[in-house]
Computed example of a mutant assay.
Amino acid sequence: MERNLNDVMLGSLELFCLAAELQSFTAAAQAAGLNPAAVSRSVARLEVRLGVRLFVRSTRRIHLTDSGRTYYDHCRQALSLMRDAEAKLTGAQTAPSGLLRISMASPYGHCRVLPLLPKFRLRYPLVQFELNLSNRNVDFTAEDFDLAIRGRTPPDSTLIARKLEDAELVLVASPDYLARAGVPRSLDDLSRHDCLQFVLPSTGQFVSWQFRVDGREVDLATPPSYRCVEDYLGMVTLARQGAGLLQTYRYIVQEDLASGRLQELLPAFGGRSRAFSLIYPNREHTALRVRALIEFLIEELAHGPVSAER
C-alpha cells in the first residue's frame, strides 16, 4: 500500500487541529511544547500540500476558512479514530478523556445538567468541559460543538436526537400577586391577568401555554405584560416577585412550590410536557467521551427530577 502520510505529516495534522481548537498558533505551540514558528511551518506545509488556505490570519487570532473547517472536521474524526484504535489494541485508554463542548438551554442546564457534571468527572476525571448556556440552536459544524440539549429538536436529518426526559409544565404565581389580582378559576380568566412570556430566539415568537381540557391538548396564546428575550430564568424571577402568571417547567420551580413561594394554578388543566433531547451530529465515529456523557445523562435524567420531599 502506498504511504501517503509520514510521521511529519501526521504531526502537522495534530498541530493543525490543535491550532484550530485554540484559535492561536501561540497557544497551540505552548500546549504542544513547541515554538509558534514550528506550528506555523507545519500548517504552511499542509496548505502547500492541499493547495488551499486553511486559516485566515490576523494580528491576534486565527480563524478557519471554509476549506479549513471541512478539513478540520475530517482530520479531527480521523485522529480520534486512530487514538481509539490504538487504545483498543494496547488497552491504554480505560476511560474517556479530552474536551467536551456542550450547548444547552439555560434553565435546563442550571437545574438539570450542571448539578450532574461533577459526578461525571468523578467517574471520568480526564474529561474537561466547555459549556455554552443559551437558548439558541447552535451550528455544530461552524461552532464545533459535540453535543446540544434542547426542548425542541431541530429539523436536520444530519443530527441524531435521543430523548432525556419529558419535562412537565406547570402554571404558577406568587401569593402576593394572587392576593392582589385574584386566583384564576378557568382558562378564560387568564386573559384578564398579567402574563409572563418568553420570546423564542429562533423565531421571535411567544411560546404558547399548553393545557389539557377533557383529554384534549389545548395551546393558548396569552397577552404578555412582560416579555423576556434570551434569559428564560428572568421570567421566574419576575413571577417570584409578584409580576404575574407564568407557565414554566416544574423542575425549575419545584422548590418554590414546596416552600409556598409560588403557588400552582389550574392543576385540573395541567399534565402537558415538553421533551428534552440530546442532539449531536450523525457521524460514523463518535468520540468515547461523547458516548460516555450521552449514556450518563440518559441514565441520570430518565426518571425525571427528584422532588424536595423525596
Rank of each mutant, 00 (worst) to 15 (best):
L79D: 10
E130S: 14
L266C: 03
V113N: 01
V236E: 13
R162L: 13
E217Q: 11
S12P: 02
R57G: 02
Y108L: 15
R121K: 09
T248E: 06
R61L: 09
L5W: 13
Y249Q: 14
L288N: 06
G234E: 08
C228L: 06
P154W: 09
H63V: 09
R227E: 13
D146P: 07
P305L: 02
S273E: 07
D219E: 14
P125L: 09
Y280R: 04
R289P: 01
G98K: 09
L116C: 02
F55E: 08
A37N: 06
A32F: 07
A243V: 04
A44R: 15
R274P: 00
N135L: 09
L122Y: 04
T203C: 05
D256P: 01
M1A: 14
R185L: 08
F269S: 07
T94A: 11
A292N: 05
G98H: 09
L54H: 06
A105L: 07
P281S: 07
H285S: 10
A105D: 11
E299Q: 13
A302E: 08
S191N: 03
R123A: 10
T59L: 12
R272I: 00
V207G: 00
I252D: 00
L265Y: 02
T222D: 00
F276P: 00
L246S: 00
V138E: 11
N6D: 15
L238H: 08
L297D: 04
Y280L: 12
A78E: 12
A167S: 15
G204A: 08
I160D: 05
D189F: 05
Q205I: 02
S106R: 12
L122R: 12
V218I: 15
E2A: 11
L159W: 07
T222V: 15
A78Y: 11
D214Y: 11
M82I: 14
L54F: 09
S106Q: 13
A275F: 04
Q93G: 10
G98W: 11
R216S: 13
D84H: 15
F296R: 03
L288T: 12
S174Y: 05
C111G: 03
V290H: 03
V236S: 09
L15M: 12
D73V: 11
T153L: 10
L79N: 07
D7N: 13
R240Q: 14
G91E: 08
Q205V: 04
S273A: 15
G244R: 02
L233S: 10
G304C: 06
N282G: 04
G304L: 03
V213A: 06
L114K: 12
L126V: 00
